[in-house]
């Protein structure tokens, strides 16, 4: 799962047309783009080149350096490993590649998984790099995600750094006493830390809630920044998914 998310800067501050788009337009565009990519028929491979070019175009307009994208692509390592296993475990006719007998179906599936998965990862990275986290949350609210859910996400996002710092302090405290997790017997120590971390997080939640009540919280957060979207913004944002949907449709017709 989510091994070592370094929780550092996700957003790249630039002044480009893509940064200026309303967040809800960008979220919807990425969602439609990804679904179109996933719906690509199995027998074709040329559409992936079109999708990749479209994403390259977005990255170029948004001035997101390739290095930033590549560095964040480490999250896909687990499914790359799975994709590499597919040709070995899949059934169907075998082909010889460098003296190893591999499943033809597995090879094809591995390529499709890598292509679709990577395009999805890059699209998400571009979304996070061009949209402030706060705006992403506002965008979700604009897209009619239930308000309570958005509020939970907002609180999580605001306090995750605090909780992580708390956890780091506990780790430093453990290590300064000479602790090092070596075998399963040490689980108890880690579990005690996790338990303490839960209690501290929960109690912080209670304090935050009381502090908010005293400032007039009635269950809704006031909207301070309006992220209204103009039809022209939707038109610009629709370019990427339109290219993808057209490509997928073409691939289904001429496959």
């Amino acid at each position: 799962m989510s091994g070592g998310h370094a929780h550092h800067q996700l957003y790249l501050d630039r002044e480009t047309a893509i940064h200026r788009l309303a967040p809800q337009c960008k979220i919807a565009a990425v969602l439609v783009f990804v679904i179109a990519v996933v719906a690509t028929p199995r027998e074709t491979d040329w559409p992936y080149a079109v999708y990749a070019l479209a994403l390259l175009g977005v990255a170029a307009v948004a001035r997101v350096p390739a290095l930033v994208v590549v560095r964040r692509m480490v999250v896909e390592i687990p499914f790359v490993i799975f994709a590499l296993l597919l040709p070995i475990i899949a059934r169907g006719p075998r082909v010889d590649v460098l003296g190893v007998s591999l499943s033809a179906n597995g090879l094809e599936s591995a390529f499709i998984l890598l292509a679709k998965g990577t395009l999805g990862v890059v699209a998400s990275i571009l979304l996070a790099a061009t949209t402030r986290p706060r705006d992403l949350l506002l965008g979700l609210q604009r897209l009619r995600m239930p308000e309570t859910l958005v509020q939970i996400m907002t609180f999580m996002f605001r306090y995750v750094e605090v909780v992580l710092a708390e956890m780091t302090r506990m780790r430093i405290a453990r290590e300064s006493r000479g602790f090092q997790a070596r075998h399963a017997g040490h689980l108890r120590v880690l579990a005690n830390s996790a338990g303490a971390l839960f209690i501290r997080s929960y109690e912080r939640g209670e304090r935050v809630h009381l502090a908010m009540l005293s400032r007039g919280y009635v269950g809704r957060m006031p909207v301070l920044v309006d992220v209204r979207s103009a039809p022209s913004q939707w038109a610009v944002a629709a370019l990427l998914p339109l290219v993808a949907v057209a490509t997928t449709a073409a691939a289904w017709v001429i496959r």
Binding site: S2, I152, F155, Y159, L164, F198, Y202, H209
Partner: peptide, 14 residues
């Protein structure tokens, strides 16, 4: 909202 948010942050951290 505040409590579930903090518990979600805890799950993320743990």
């Amino acid at each position: 909202a505040p409590l579930a948010g903090l518990v979600a942050a805890f799950v993320f951290a743990v």
